[in-house]
Amino acid sequence: MTAAETPDTPDAERPAEPAEPGAPAEPACSAAPGAPAAPAGLSERDRAVLAVERRGWPGPGAKERAIRERLGLSPTRYYQLLGALLDDPRAAEHDPVTVNRLRRVRDARRARR
């Protein structure tokens, strides 16, 4: 054991070591096997927002409750984030079915106004 590795050194004083050398800080989404990972993917929160939207809900109350409990967001903030995600090409790469469905719904609502 070297002097830097003494067992009496508190963990707070030791430098943080990455789990794997060269591992990305954030896990990449699995768009296609063998495809190169995008340098800047979606955040965990963005993926969670898309996952909530992907699921079917029996009514608005259940969805709003899930948004508050699972994401820790108000429904208003959730829909603001979702609106921004629909314009993000990384979201379309991550979950094209959900994003394209939501874009069609948004466009239909805009056309009715």
Rank of each mutant, 00 (worst) to 15 (best):
A38L: 15
A23M: 11
A28Y: 00
C29W: 02
G22D: 12
P27G: 10
A32V: 04
V52W: 05
S30W: 01
A37Q: 01
C29Q: 02
S30Q: 09
W57H: 05
G22E: 13
W57I: 08
A31K: 05
P58V: 13
R47D: 14
R54K: 10
G41M: 01
R54W: 13
S43P: 10
A32H: 03
P21K: 01
E44F: 08
W57G: 13
L42E: 12
L50E: 04
E26T: 10
A31N: 05
D46Q: 11
A31Y: 05
P27V: 01
P33W: 07
V49R: 01
G34D: 13
R45C: 12
W57C: 10
C29V: 01
D46C: 06
E53S: 12
L42K: 04
P21Y: 05
G56V: 07
G22Q: 03
R47I: 07
A48M: 08
R54V: 04
R47Y: 07
G34A: 14
A31V: 09
P39I: 00
V49S: 13
P36A: 12
G56A: 14
R45N: 07
V52M: 13
G56C: 09
E26K: 00
P39T: 04
R45L: 15
E20R: 12
P33S: 13
P58G: 09
A35P: 06
A40F: 14
A38Y: 01
P27T: 02
A28Q: 06
A40E: 15
V49C: 09
A32M: 08
E20Y: 12
E44L: 15
A32Q: 03
A25R: 00
P39K: 02
R54F: 08
W57K: 03
R47K: 11
A35Y: 05
E26Q: 02
E44G: 14
P33K: 08
R55N: 06
P58A: 11
P33G: 07
G34H: 06
L42Q: 09
S43I: 00
E53C: 14
P24I: 00
E44Q: 14
A31W: 05
V52G: 04
E53P: 00
L50I: 02
G22S: 03
A48T: 02
P21F: 13
V52P: 05
A51Q: 05
A48V: 04
C29A: 10
A32F: 01
E44D: 08
L42T: 14
A48I: 03
A31G: 11
P33M: 09
S30I: 05
S43D: 10
P39E: 14
A32T: 04
E44I: 05
R55E: 08
S30N: 07
P24A: 01
A28V: 07
E53W: 02
G56Y: 08
R47T: 09
A38S: 11
C29R: 00
V52T: 03
A40D: 15
C29F: 10
R47H: 14
P24N: 07
A31C: 14
A38Q: 13
A40M: 09
E20P: 02
S43M: 11
W57N: 09
A51T: 12
P24L: 00
V49I: 14
A40K: 03
D46Y: 11
L42D: 08
W57P: 05
A40H: 12
R54S: 12
R47C: 15
R45F: 13
P33N: 08
R45P: 06
A51Y: 03
S30Y: 02
S43V: 01
S30V: 07
D46N: 08
E44S: 15
G34E: 10
G22P: 03
P33H: 06
